[in-house]
């Protein structure tokens, strides 16, 4: 089996206005399909930095990145954007829906952002996903008309529409109540059962931990612990 994401010696520096500060120490990590990996750690620990590097949204200051077996280190920004579009699904903290677009359009926007038209069948697939996620009645609703949990499920539908190899979720439950959070986590857990897909979830919400197949703890820009042995896959 091939890891969906492989990081080798990945590190990240930030300029804090006075000096260069290393927020992520050189890190080796592999993420596997069929798993829900939780990246946990206190705020400022570097977990979101790690997530954004994995998601090819932030360039690492050092190290190499592979996605689905292909090295993406050093690709151009536009080429990375295309890899993101094809391989990744993103679920942001507070959903990250575009308020100007209806729920359905938000879902479609993820996959169709590089073109002027929506690929044939995509709309139908989106509606199927809405149905599976229990939000079929809200396809035409605007984001402001949806509850936090519903918004997050729209975001999940958006992330899933491209059949991504990896679903990257940034604190997806931090803004949700207990019930919504449970629905969202159940959905993510179910998605992680797909042997072709990995789910990586960044959080410091303890409600998430029981859902973890693997827990990677980040502290001070380092992997403090990892419940998965490196050797096994």
């Amino acid at each position: 089996m091939e890891p969906v994401i492989r990081l080798e010696g990945v590190a990240r520096d930030f300029w804090d206005g006075v000096r260069r500060r290393r927020v992520l120490q050189p890190t080796d990590l592999e993420f596997w399909p069929g798993e829900l990996t939780v990246l946990a750690g206190p705020s400022g620990s570097g977990k979101t930095t790690l997530l954004t590097i994995m998601g090819l949204v932030l360039a690492p200051s050092a190290g190499r990145v592979w996605v689905a077996g292909e090295e993406v280190t050093g690709l151009s920004e536009d080429a990375l954007a295309t890899v993101r579009l094809k391989r990744f699904g993103f679920v942001f903290q507070s959903a990250g829906l575009v308020p100007a677009l209806s729920a359905l359009d938000n879902a479609l926007a993820g996959r169709s952002i590089q073109s002027d038209r929506v690929a044939p069948g995509l709309r139908e697939r989106a509606l199927e996903l809405f149905d599976e996620l229990g939000i079929a009645d809200y396809a035409r609703a605007m984001p402001t008309q949806l509850s936090g949990g519903q918004q997050q499920r729209v975001a999940i539908a958006r992330a899933l529409l491209g059949e991504p190899a990896v679903l990257l979720c940034d604190e997806p439950t931090s803004a949700l109540d207990v019930d919504s959070s449970r629905v969202v986590l159940d959905t993510l857990k179910r998605l992680a059962r797909d042997p072709k897909r990995g789910v990586v979830l960044v959080t410091h919400d303890p409600r998430v931990f029981p859902y973890a197949d693997r827990l990677v703890k980040i502290e001070d820009g380092r992997i403090a612990s990892d419940t998965k042995d490196k050797a096994e896959g």
Binding site: D78, V98, Q114
Partner: peptide, 16 residues
Amino acid sequence: QRDFAVFRALGARRRD
């Protein structure tokens, strides 16, 4: 800005 950032993260190229 946030909407554009979301689009970029989702895979929009600069040209998009």
